[in-house]
């Protein structure tokens, strides 16, 4: 939860685009940790069949792990997209500060 808070405020408050993206990743990771924690049951094994199928009692809940995997795929693609946008902006304006870019844009229009 604390990690989620750190990531969230980073994404919202940081001016630097790269730091915003790091914030986003911290936020996502926090959510995945939360999910993984909730899926774990003490003293049981991962739901992978090694030596024959055992009883239901032997395994932890596999669904949260599935959700985490899906979530990781989503966050990887989103991060890639954000990074490419950042590169575009940097090449054009030579700064990573979003507010500075806005002022440059306003100057451009006049």
């Amino acid at each position: 939860m604390i990690l989620f808070g750190i990531g969230f405020s980073n994404l919202l408050l940081q001016k630097n685009l790269i730091k915003k993206i790091i914030g986003l990743n911290i936020m996502d990771t926090a959510t995945y940790l939360f999910l993984a924690l909730k899926g774990y049951i003490d003293g049981r094994k991962a739901p992978v069949v090694v030596d024959g199928i055992q009883s239901v009692e032997a395994y932890v809940n596999p669904i949260p792990s599935g959700l985490v995997l899906t979530g990781i795929v989503v966050s990887v693609s989103v991060t890639a997209l954000m990074l490419s946008l950042t590169i575009r902006l940097y090449r054009r304006y030579h700064t990573l500060d979003l507010d500075e870019i806005s002022t440059l844009l306003k100057k451009e229009e006049k």
Partner: peptide, 16 residues
Amino acid sequence: GRTIEAATRYMIMSLL
């Protein structure tokens, strides 16, 4: 520049 900046802002809010 305008649209890229707009897209970045949109992404940030949407990701939140």
